[in-house]
Write a protein that binds this DNA or RNA. Structure first.
Lengths: 192, 192
DNA sequence: GTCTATATAAGGATAGAC
DNA sequence: GTCTATCCTTATATAGAC
């Protein structure tokens, strides 16, 4: 792994742990085992490095979600699989975490990957929910866009509660609670 | 308003906007119109000041929630009123925001108000949901603790989505979506 | 490409005068 | 109680040698 690569991976970790404001170029360099010169050779500065790291994390999240959402099973089962996917609740979401940072929100290069990720996720979840309505698994009375937003929010909010309280329990409860509300709406999938 | 008071209020604003890592004593002093000496006379340092500000924000959140949750109407209506309470989605939650900050999580004096707030909120929401089950408005099949966690998470996650995408829409959708799932479970309240 | 100065500003706090 | 002076460290970046 070359040093540019190590810098990006180190930035990804530090962004996750400390956010953009809390990520210092020095700390990234130390963790990557690279010097000042190396970093400023590959990247124009802190923001440029963070943008590269963030784009990678956003792509990763998206690929991971797509794998589950386009997997086997009925619409409801795929949404459930996505919600129940194993996550470290206390670490939270690499992408969602950035949304709190005012400097991320203010810098288009940093904000775009974050905005796009969640716009995509909501749309993709809504699409699956629409399939569920079309197949009769879910009632047509549920607005798929609203439901999708609620489900995406439960995950992001679950992280907040878990970190606040110092344990994964609130996250797990939130996911279970949301899933219970959703599946209460579903009839068993047609089993062909 | 004396200068101690102004310092706390300024700290509250800056914590909200920039988080604990991003809040510098200098910036608080400037906003409060107070000097170094004044701040260090009233508070032992950044953490002490932030703790005072955070305790106040936590108390405020709790009082606000309690007003709605102990208000008039059936259980379901009170939960709905709490969810629909007007909030600035792009600014987010003064307390929830702190949960992302590693230095807040690491410092007991900062973390406690955050942890207590959400533990209380989940418990209080669950209590109201239990009332709803007892009165027959909600089905006994819903786990009140799980549902409460899901609802609290929807709000916190709604803020994340809103900030990420730069508009209140995802927040509003998330709240509507969650409420739709909940009220689909409810029968009309007994109208005595 | 990477290293070692070097630079300016800010962070966070202390000391002592008034 | 508040002000000013001072302190050491870190953040972020540039410059130029190798």
């Amino acid at each position: 792994m070359d040093s540019s690569e190590r810098l990006i991976e180190s930035a990804r970790e530090l962004l996750w742990e400390r956010g953009y404001v809390g990520m210092s170029p020095r700390a990234v360099q130390r963790r990557a085992g690279a010097g000042q010169g190396s970093m400023y050779h590959h990247f124009s500065g802190k923001q440029d490095l963070a943008a590269a790291a963030l784009r990678r994390s956003a792509a990763e999240l998206r690929e991971q979600a797509e794998r589950t959402l386009s997997g086997p099973g009925g619409a409801c089962e795929r949404v459930a699989a996505y919600l129940l996917h194993e996550r470290d609740a206390l670490r939270g979401c690499r992408v969602g975490r950035m949304a709190q940072d005012p400097e991320v929100i203010a810098a288009p290069a940093l904000r775009e990957p974050v905005a796009e990720t969640f716009a995509w996720l909501r749309a993709r979840l809504a699409e699956v929910l629409r399939e569920g309505a079309a197949s009769g698994q879910l009632p047509g009375s549920l607005d798929p866009d609203d439901t999708a937003a609620a489900l995406a929010a439960v995950l992001q909010g679950g992280y907040v509660l878990a970190r606040a309280e110092g344990g994964a329990e609130p996250y797990e409860r939130a996911v279970r609670g949301a899933l219970a509300l959703l599946t209460a709406q579903a009839r068993p999938a047609a089993t062909p």
